[in-house]
């Protein structure tokens, strides 16, 4: 195991997640199309989730093979459990991310219905045009 390469690749992963975060934040904030905002928002959610799981990782040591947090032995002895604790990654972030993904899907479905409503009422999903239309309506009502 080449520790320099491992560290470099891990930090490269973290930096890529930061870059993804910045790009999708740009998409959510600066793009005018609502569907584009929605796509960027889903990627943003996923980036944060990957980052949460990444925090629960642990270093490979020589002679130590990591495993997912699931016991494979149905009648474990104390030695097997001790070995399992030494080898397994952190299960807590995984448990949080698991529910976050499904709930994120439900929230995204709600947002899609909202986008469809907006598209029906304004005949466009461009937020600049929608803002202009609303300004015009208010101006007409005031005059």
């Amino acid at each position: 195991m080449d520790i320099e390469l491992v560290k470099f690749m891990f930090i490269l992963t973290v930096m890529s997640l930061y870059l993804n975060f910045a790009i999708t934040l740009y998409g959510v904030v600066a793009k005018v199309n609502l569907v584009k905002k929605l796509i960027a928002l889903t990627i943003l959610q996923d980036t944060v989730n990957v980052f949460t799981v990444l925090i629960g990782y642990r270093l490979w040591r020589p002679g130590l093979i990591l495993q997912p947090p699931a016991l494979t032995d149905m009648n474990p002895t104390p030695e097997i459990i001790k070995d399992f604790v030494e080898r397994s990654v952190d299960p807590l972030p995984q448990a949080f991310v698991l529910t976050a993904i499904v709930i994120g899907l439900a929230v995204t479905l709600f947002l899609t219905t909202i986008v469809l409503h907006v598209n029906y009422h304004f005949k466009t999903v461009n937020v600049d045009e929608i803002g202009g239309m609303k300004r015009r309506y208010i101006h007409e009502e005031a005059v």
Partner: peptide
Amino acid sequence: GLGDLPPQDIRLIARSYLNLTYNQG
């Protein structure tokens, strides 16, 4: 800000979860 990368070890609470989840003792 994130500590060592990759993290040296898992947290104490994770250790106790892993230890207790199927420990018949």
